[in-house]
C-alpha cells in the first residue's frame, strides 16, 4: 500500500504523482520501474517508470498519461488515497557512464522517464543534448526540468505550435551528421518513435539505447508476457531490460504484441466510461432533488 502525497495535472491527459514508498525510493536507480494496481482484487498490473525519487521524503514520482482503464482510475485518485498495490523497483538500471556526448530523445510522455537518466548522465560528466518532442504544445511536459540539465535543448512539436515544427528524428539526424558525432543516443517514447530513432542512427553506427514499455503481468520474469525479439533472441523486458540496443529490437513484433488485448481493453474501458457517466448523471440528479 502506498499513499499519494502529491498530485498535479501536467497537461490535458498527463498526471504527476508522488507516492509514499521509502524502500523503493532508496533502492531505485535511473531506468527502473514499478508495477501498480488500483484495486487489490480486480485491478490489472501496469508498469510505470520511476521518474524521480526523494529518499528524505521516502517518496517516488510517477508521471502517466491516461490511456486506458487503470491510468484513468489512477488519475481519479487524490492526495491521501492509498494505492493498494505498488511493487518495485523492477528492471535493470540504465548503464550510466561518461560516454562523452550523449543525445537524449524523449517523445511525449517519454520525457518523464528520460529525466532521471539525463540527470544521471549529466552527473557522470557527459555533454547532454536533449531533444524533446510532442504532438503539440499542450502535450509537452517537463521543459523546465530538462532545460536545467541540458547543455543543449531542442524542442519540437509535430504541428509547430511550439518550438521547431519537426519530428524528433530530424534534429537527431542533424546531430548524427555533425562532428563530433554523439557517442551514444538514448531514446524513450512511443514505440514508433523509438523505432525511427533507431533507424535514424543506424547508418551512422551510433549505439542507441531504447527503453521498452511492453504489456506486463508480474514484472519478475515469471510470465513471459513482456517478451520481445532482440537480435533474434527472446528477451523478457521486465528482467532482461527494460533497456535494449535499439538497432536489434524487432519493433514491429513489439507493436503487434502491444495490441494483443486492444479490442478487449477498449470494450472494458468503454464500459467504465459509461459507468462513470451514469454515476455523474445520477449525482447531478440527486443534487437537483
Amino acid at each position: 500500500m502506498s499513499k499519494i502525497i502529491y498530485k498535479e495535472k501536467l497537461s490535458d491527459n498527463v498526471y504527476k504523482m508522488r507516492l509514499e514508498a521509502p524502500l523503493i525510493a532508496t533502492e531505485r536507480k535511473a531506468g527502473q520501474f514499478i508495477i501498480l494496481q488500483v484495486d487489490e482484487d480486480y485491478g490489472e498490473r501496469i508498469p510505470l517508470t520511476i521518474a524521480d525519487a526523494d529518499t528524505e521524503e521516502g517518496s517516488i514520482t510517477i508521471i502517466f498519461q491516461v490511456v486506458g482503464l487503470t491510468t484513468d482510475e489512477l488519475s481519479r485518485m487524490n492526495v491521501g488515497d492509498d494505492i493498494p498495490v505498488l511493487v518495485g523497483p523492477l528492471g535493470n538500471p540504465t548503464n550510466i557512464e561518461n560516454f562523452g556526448t550523449v543525445v537524449c530523445v524523449g517523445g511525449g510522455i517519454g520525457v518523464a522517464p528520460m529525466h532521471p537518466i539525463a540527470q544521471a548522465l549529466k552527473a557522470a560528466g557527459n555533454k547532454v543534448i536533449i531533444i524533446m518532442g510532442a504532438r503539440n504544445k499542450e502535450l509537452l511536459i517537463m521543459e523546465d526540468e530538462m532545460e536545467k540539465i541540458a547543455d543543449e535543448l531542442i524542442v519540437v512539436t509535430d504541428d509547430g505550435s511550439y518550438g521547431r515544427k519537426a519530428l524528433v528524428t530530424e534534429p537527431l539526424k542533424e546531430l548524427c551528421e555533425k562532428e563530433p558525432k554523439p557517442n551514444i543516443v538514448f531514446a524513450i517514447g512511443p514505440p514508433i518513435m523509438m523505432k525511427f530513432c533507431a533507424l535514424t542512427t543506424k547508418p551512422y553506427n551510433i549505439y542507441t539505447e531504447v527503453s521498452l514499455n511492453t504489456i506486463m503481468v508480474d514484472g519478475t520474469g515469471m510470465c513471459g508476457g513482456c517478451r520481445v525479439n532482440v537480435g533474434n533472441q527472446v528477451k523478457f523486458v521486465c528482467v532482461d531490460g527494460p533497456e535494449f540496443d535499439g538497432h536489434l529490437v524487432d519493433f514491429d513484433n513489439m507493436m503487434a504484441r502491444l495490441s494483443e488485448f486492444k479490442d478487449i481493453e477498449k470494450e472494458k474501458y468503454q464500459c467504465y466510461i459509461d459507468l462513470m457517466a451514469e454515476a455523474k448523471i445520477a449525482e447531478n440528479e440527486s443534487k437537483e432533488d
Binding site: 503481468v217 520474469g221 515469471m222
Partner: peptide, 21 residues
C-alpha cells in the same frame, strides 16, 4: 517461475502465451 519456450518460429506472435501468463 521462469517459463520455458520452445524456441520455434512464431513463438512471439500475438496469441501465444506461456501457461504461467
Amino acid at each position: 517461475g521462469l517459463p520455458i519456450f520452445m524456441g520455434i518460429e512464431g513463438e512471439n506472435l500475438v496469441g501465444v502465451f506461456s501457461a504461467n501468463e
